[in-house]
Design a protein around this nucleic acid. Structure first.
Ligand code: FES
Ligand code: FES
Lengths: 173, 173
DNA sequence: ATAACTCGGATTCATAATGTCCGAGTTGAA
DNA sequence: TTCAACTCGGACATTATGAATCCGAGTTAT
């Protein structure tokens, strides 16, 4: 459908799901919105599949980051002020709380297996991975949705968010 | 085959491939080894599929982390002293150099798309993700394979690495 | 010279992410 | 009060990616 042939050579496994990008962009938009925004409208705005984006918004809803308003003029609204929603919150909501590294306890397999009673503490390798994981999450926790909104505003001269909100509201109904 | 039903509920996408764990354990073992170790032997030691582990060792070989010695008593040897091989080197070799987050340029899609000429710099969201990615890699870079070996030695009283090397060498041949 | 043992890349299979659908619930207006 | 339209919510196919496998090329010790 799309002509894009975005060379996706990169494809081993550390990559995090594409839905994260959409979810974050949606959150930034919601930062500026004053009324509930339907998922369909957000999808049209971003040019992505409506049903698929809905799936991710549901994840945000489950994580209590956004509140869903049903009914005729319903949609999604942020539950907390944007300063209190971190990028990490969104990422964990969409990607799940899984750690980047899961130890399969390799050390307990094979002929030289370590006895289970010696494996109360995590393996040294696991510890290193967990430390890195913590660093990653800490960095994401430093940035709030509000920060992202401000950065976007600075990037473009014009008041992009304002324009977008304007486009959202009147919408031929 | 294996009775383990290791509940793998965690399954969204940030998780990094299981091969990393095996590769790192192999590197730690190679730290102590004095002679080339065949992939098959490493696989047996860890109780994992030989052919699959070979795949990952090849990745390490391509990344110039280990040198492959062919022939009758060949195998793998570390190319550099273990102090100069970081955990990050191994992870990148196995998982590929892909960043954790790839921006699909959502901002350039849809009715309110930003014009391409305004998108020379990466999106604010991308910047945040890149920063977190840097933090993650920095943490992994801090730990060398030699460090891991030392930590393992401290964890267990007995000289595990020595025992393993002993098991590797004589091996009914 | 031979034979055995090594790695190397190309191939197949299974899992999980992507993308989609229709039904339940709620709101707003007539 | 009734109705109708619009919303979200979870359950369902499809496709891409990772996991696991195989056999062939090359090298070395005998
Ligand atoms: S046993 Fe899993 S990382 Fe060492
Ligand atoms: S356009 Fe890709 S992260 Fe903003």
């Amino acid at each position: 459908m799309l002509s894009e042939s975005r060379c996706r050579r990169y494809a081993e496994s550390v990559r995090l799901s594409g839905g994260v990008e959409a979810a974050l962009h949606c959150c930034v938009v919601l930062t500026a919105a004053t009324e509930p925004v339907p998922a369909a409208r957000l999808a049209e705005l971003h040019g992505v599949s409506a049903t698929y984006l809905a799936k991710h918004l549901q994840a945000l809803s489950r994580a209590e980051l956004v509140h869903s308003v049903q009914g005729k003029s319903g949609g999604y609204v942020l539950t907390r002020p944007p300063e209190e929603i971190t990028t990490l919150d969104v990422v964990e909501a969409v990607e799940g709380p899984a750690p980047t590294f899961v130890c399969a306890e390799i050390r307990q397999r094979g002929p030289m297996a370590a006895p289970p009673e010696a494996c109360t503490a995590p393996c040294a390798i696991t510890r290193a991975m967990i430390a890195a994981d913590r660093a990653w999450r800490a960095a994401l926790r430093e940035v709030s949705i509000a920060d992202l909104g401000r950065s976007v505003a600075q990037d473009y001269e014009s008041d992009v968010l304002g324009q977008i909100v304007g486009w959202l509201a009147p919408a031929e109904h």
